[in-house]
Amino acid sequence: MRCVRVHFTKTGRMIYVSHLDVNRMMTRAVRRAELPMWYTEGFNPHPYIAFALPLSLGQSSECEFMDIKIETDMTNEEIKKRLSPVMPEGVRILSVGEPDGNINEITAASYSVNLEFASHEDAERFYSGAISALDGDELMAEKMGKKGHRKVLKQVNLIEQIYKKSLSLDGCCINLELTVAAGNTVNLNPALLTETLEKQIGIIPESQRITRTGIIFKGE
């Protein structure tokens, strides 16, 4: 038995498919690819597939991965060759290799956020508003969190969860490159950041595109 990491993209129409459905989709894809999957033992055996950070509905990604377990020593090239043609539109297999970091040790993720506004003026006002908000020490947002088994609204300071940022303005568009906290303990969804900025600045973009561009492990 061998653990293999499959890197893939999630773009186009696939962004409207939820994390749970991608999970189901991949279970069927590995069957179509006729990979020698290792099955979990127990009452209801199923192929072992583990996913990294769930991606929010509507966001695309250039850097998704899943870990699968296979029974024989099939080469990584062969796995890629079999998986590629059975993927639905919007999922492209980038590479297949050894796991290069533990899923539980993900600490951050980077995103590219593109906002398009109705006018250049709106974009400019949002741009300057966003710069001063992001340069401050505190940007509070409400977030659903857990307290034991109960779900409760929590106040979080987003600034503490943003590790890197760069903003650029081009006509009616703003591009925001972010590296933010990600993983099991602290995780910032960039959509929460843009929503918070929209509320604070009072301008809502016409459209918003969020792409995950990288996943970062502890020590990187």
Binding site: R13, M14, Y16, L57, G58, E89, G90
Partner: peptide, 25 residues
């Protein structure tokens, strides 16, 4: 293909996957 106008509203509705097509086969 999703019509442009439809694409703008997809994230405002439940289960947008219902309206996009592009499924395998």
């Amino acid at each position: 293909m999703i019509p442009k106008e439809a694409e703008k509203v997809l994230l405002k509705v439940q289960k947008p996957g219902r309206y996009v097509g592009g499924e395998l086969n």
